[in-house]
């Protein structure tokens, strides 16, 4: 049984002039110890997917489809039972370490909170556990970090503290939503290594959300590419990187600047991400796709197999794969 099984998950958000479907019927599985990368541009629905898994959609947001954790559908749980899942079975690391910690409480106070809540530790036991967590995430001299306030720490140190908090109750699934985007390049690698190490040493499953293909390539077993609220391509990381199937994935890879390309214009995907409240009919990428035909604007493409466990949703897959000249130079 998969640790996490998401089936036709749809998220609708209230907007002026009707509901916007931020996530439109995505499905994926996550096995124990496996890591899945979700990659895509801002507004493609990847963060909304994460919040839906946590049961923390913005007010008025509604869900459809199912999210099963170890076979138990989370959508049938009431709020109290969901609170028991959050931070305990599924934990999350957020994008902005600068604002994701409460400025008026010490790191220690914020770290012992889930320990006391989910593991039933008393304050002293929780403190001992918090010290070992702080040491594990590389905040040696835990006494100092325990009594420090967030503003006294750097962005990297805060993200380490966030990771300590997420790990505290030994969750089965860790969701990391752009964990390094707000950090200095020099720190990004350290934080990624830390996440990767703790996930593998504790046999946790990981969902790594990023717009950065480099991050995805380094850390995950499987990758799902999202566009306009849908997963357009999904497969083992090595497979996908070896054979980019979907025109959007190809464009995304082509847009990664390469050292040694000399002075030339950076490659982009023409056009902009469509508004979620006003998505076009048919393939959501058709308006920006150089391969699109008339039919692409009317017909929603289904997922089709393009290799071992490798699938993509495009009506013109053959043409796309024939022109695929991109691969990530690693």
């Amino acid at each position: 049984m998969s640790v996490l099984e998401v089936d036709r998950l749809t998220v609708s958000l209230p907007m002026v002039g009707g509901a916007a479907r931020a996530v439109r019927g995505i499905s994926f599985r996550l096995e124990r110890g496996e890591s899945l990368g979700i990659v895509g541009e801002s507004g493609c629905g990847k963060s909304m997917t994460a919040l839906a898994l946590m049961g923390l959609l913005p007010d008025g947001g509604t869900l459809d489809g199912s999210i099963a954790l170890n076979g138990r559908n989370l959508r049938t749980l009431d709020e109290a039972a969901m609170c028991h899942v959050r931070g305990n079975a599924i934990a999350m690391v957020f994008q902005e370490p600068m604002t994701s910690l409460n400025p008026v409480h010490t790191i220690g106070k914020q770290l012992v909170e889930p320990l006391m809540l989910h593991l039933g530790l008393d304050r002293d036991e929780a403190k001992v556990e918090a010290f070992s967590l702080l040491e594990r995430v590389g905040l040696v001299d835990p006494q100092r970090y325990y009594s420090a306030f967030p503003h006294q720490l750097s962005g990297g140190q805060r993200q380490r503290a966030m990771i300590a908090m997420a790990l505290s109750c030994h969750p089965e699934v860790l969701i990391a939503d752009e964990p390094t985007t707000a950090l200095d390049v020099t720190v990004q690698g350290q934080i990624l290594d830390l996440i990767y190490d703790v996930v593998s040493e504790r046999q946790m499953s990981l969902i790594m959300i990023s717009h950065d293909l480099g991050v995805i390539a380094q850390t995950v077993d499987r990758v799902a590419v999202m566009y306009g609220g849908s997963i357009v391509e999904q497969g083992p990381t090595a497979e996908v990187f070896a054979q980019l199937a979907h025109p959007y994935t190809q464009g995304l890879f082509a847009a990664v600047p390469q050292v040694g390309d000399g002075r030339r214009r950076l490659r982009t995907i023409p056009g902009t991400v469509p508004e979620l409240a006003d998505l076009p009919q048919g393939c959501t990428f058709a308006g920006r796709c150089s391969l699109s035909r008339e039919s692409c604007h009317h017909q929603v493409p289904d997922m089709r197999s393009v290799g071992p466990n490798h699938m993509a949703a495009c009506l013109r897959l053959d043409a796309a794969m024939a022109t695929s000249t991109f691969g990530l130079r690693r």
Partner: peptide, 20 residues
């Protein structure tokens, strides 16, 4: 953001309001 973090830790709405 830190209120969302508190909720993600499993705190109820009421506890989040009160503590964070």
């Amino acid at each position: 953001d830190y209120v969302r973090t508190a909720r993600a830790k499993g705190l109820t709405r009421a506890a989040t309001l009160w503590r964070h």
